[in-house]
Amino acid sequence: MRIAIYLILLIIGAVLPHFVYPVLLMKILCFAIFACAFNLLLGFSGLLSFGHAAFFGGAAYVSGYLIKNLELPTEVAIIGGVLSAALMGWLVGILAIRRQGIYFAMVTLALAQMVYFICLEAPITGGEDGMQGIPRGSFLGLSLKDDLTLYYVIFTGFILAFLIIYRTIHSPFGQVLKAIRENESRAISLGYDVPKYKLLAFVISAAFAGFAGILKMLVFNFATLTDVHWHMSGDVVLMTIFGGIGTILGPVVGSSIIITLEDQLTDSAGDMVTVIMGVIFVVCVLIFRKGIVGESVALYQRMLGRKNLPQVK
């Protein structure tokens, strides 16, 4: 059943760019990676970071700099960007994981604002204009000039990121994370060095957020301030909650719908988009807290449960 769903999604992903504008799809994929990385933290470790834009946009700037100013190959730039995001994640994480709940969120937000400020003021980032005209170049011998080629490269990147995050969730490490999410003091009393686990989760999440930002930079040929703005941190929270916190596919579904909506509505509704997004958020939190995927799974299980009720699982 599960494998069937993934296979269908894989086929859809491979065929879709022939019917839908590939740039929109690439944007969706980038945000899907971003939301999956964020979900690893919020959904599986119980940490609400409000500064993930710093890793998303920060890595895009670093990668862009490596490609545009240092004229390094794309492969190197991607690796460099991901490493820089991981390093930033380590720095922010080490400061933030000492605090819990809202204080954790505030520390991450404050540090992310510092990154925003650096991107605004640093001489190499292009200030308010952002870093523009970053050439796409080539990747493993493939020229990325063509949208369709780039799409498949990014699709592969998405699958790779998704699989690694999936494996992280379903690893011995992931089990410990879930235990920490469920009951932190109990995990400590069982001998787990909780801060170390949280820090590693934070670094992995930051690295993939960075990876998502780099891919987005490749698609649009620029790294902008909106990528590091706190709005971006808020958007990824919305996508994850909308799709379903703590579900595997939730962030993918959430980001697909939100990005498509944004894309469709910008022309017709203009500035109203923000209002519509706000309404969606409120409805989501009030009525279906588990998000689209979470509620669907719950519904499916209820239907299944009714059929063979007498059995204990």
């Binding site: 494996r167 379903h170 690893s171 011995p172 490490f173 410990v176 686990y197 590693l200």
Partner: peptide
């Protein structure tokens, strides 16, 4: 977590693989 996982998480704390996020559960 399931009842079994509850106990297993305690057994697991003595394992050396707890940081191996690339390993299968």
């Amino acid at each position: 977590l399931s009842v079994l996982e509850n106990v297993r998480i305690a057994l697991q704390s003595k394992q050396k693989t707890n940081f191996y996020f690339w390993r299968s559960e």
